[in-house]
Simulated assay, not measured.
Amino acid sequence: MRLRHLVLTVLLVALAACASTPRQTLYQQFGERAGIEALVEELLVRVLEDPRINEGFAEVDLVNLNDRLVEQICVEVGGPCTYTGKTMAESHATLAVTEADFNALVEDLVDAMDARGIPRRAQNRLLVRLAPMHRDIVSP
C-alpha cells in the first residue's frame, strides 16, 4: 500500500511540474533578440564561407543584410520587431537566384540553427514560415 501511495505521489508531482511549466514561445525558443542576432551572425559566416553561394554576396552591404535578417527572423518567430526592408521580390529581382542557390542558403540556415542549439521543431516552424518566400526569391 505504501509503494502504491509513493508511486501516486511521484506521478502527481510530475504532472504538477509539467502543468506549471509554461511553454516557450517560438521567439523564446530562438533566444529572443540576442539569440536571433547570434543566429544571423552564424548564418552570415556560413554563407560567406560557402563556395556554392558566397560569390553572390561579394557586393552586398553585410551590415544592412544582417539588420534586415534579424528583423525578418524576429517577425517570423513572433517577436516584437518590425521588418523595414524591401519585399523579397524587390530585393531579389535582379539577382538571378537559382534553386540551387536557395537550397544552399537554407542548408546554411539549418546548420546555423543546429549550431545555436535551436530545437528542431522550432527550426521547422520557422522554415514553414519562410517557405512561401521561395517564389519571390528564386528566378523563374
Results as ranks from 00 to 15, higher is better:
Asp67Ala: 09
Glu107Val: 05
Val110Gln: 13
Thr87Trp: 00
Gly117Met: 07
Arg116His: 13
Leu109Trp: 04
Asp114Gln: 10
Leu69Cys: 01
His92Lys: 12
Pro132Leu: 02
Tyr83Ser: 00
Gly85Pro: 03
Ala122Pro: 09
Tyr83Leu: 03
Glu107Cys: 01
Met113Val: 02
Leu109Gln: 15
Arg125Gly: 08
Gln72Cys: 04
Ala122Leu: 09
Glu71Trp: 04
Gly79Trp: 08
Leu127His: 06
Asp108Cys: 06
Pro119Cys: 05
Ala122Met: 11
Leu130Trp: 06
Leu127Gly: 06
Pro119His: 15
Arg120Cys: 01
Ala131Cys: 02
Gly117His: 09
Ala100Cys: 00
Arg116Phe: 01
Ser91Lys: 13
Gly85Thr: 07
His92Phe: 05
Ala131Asn: 13
Leu130Ser: 08
Val70His: 07
Arg120Thr: 06
Leu127Ser: 07
Ala115Gly: 09
Pro132Arg: 13
Thr84Asp: 09
Leu127Trp: 01
Asp108His: 04
Ser91Val: 11
Ala131Thr: 09
His92Asp: 09
Leu109Arg: 14
Ala115Trp: 00
Arg121His: 07
Thr94Glu: 14
Ile73Cys: 05
Ala104Val: 04
Tyr83Met: 01
Ser91Phe: 00
Gly78Ser: 09
Ala112Arg: 10
Val110Gly: 06
Ile118Tyr: 06
Arg121Ala: 09
Leu130Ala: 05
Pro80His: 11
Glu76Gln: 14
Thr82Trp: 03
Val128Cys: 15
Glu76Trp: 03
Phe102Asn: 12
Asp108Leu: 04
Asn124Trp: 01
Asp108Gly: 07
